[in-house]
C-alpha cells in the first residue's frame, strides 16, 4: 500500500525520535525514492534538528 506525502511527513518526523517499524520504514523509503518534495522536506527537518542541537550545546 502506498502512502501519501502527508503520511510520509509524519513518518519522517517520527523517525527523528524513534526507530520506525519495518512496515513504516519500507513504505517511507519507497515514497522518498519517488518523491522529490518529501526528500527536500526530510532534508530540511534534519537541518532543523542539527541546528537546534548545536544551539542547545551553545555552539
Amino acid at each position: 500500500m502506498k502512502i501519501n506525502c502527508r503520511q510520509a511527513s509524519r513518518l519522517i518526523s517520527q523517525g527523528l525520535d524513534q526507530p520506525l517499524n519495518q512496515w513504516q520504514y519500507v513504505r517511507l523509503r519507497v515514497h522518498l525514492w519517488m518523491c522529490g518534495n518529501c526528500r527536500q522536506f526530510s532534508h530540511q527537518l534534519q537541518l532543523l534538528q542539527q541546528a537546534a542541537r548545536k544551539a542547545g550545546r551553545g555552539e
Binding site: C5, A51, A52, K54
Partner: peptide
C-alpha cells in the same frame, strides 16, 4: 489526496552553522 500543495524548494541560504546561529 495528501500531496504537497506547493513544491518544496531547497533553501538557498542556510548551512547548518548559519541556521544554528539564528536558531
Amino acid at each position: 489526496d495528501g500531496h504537497w500543495q506547493d513544491k518544496i524548494k531547497a533553501w538557498s541560504g542556510p548551512e547548518e552553522s548559519l541556521m544554528s546561529r539564528q536558531f
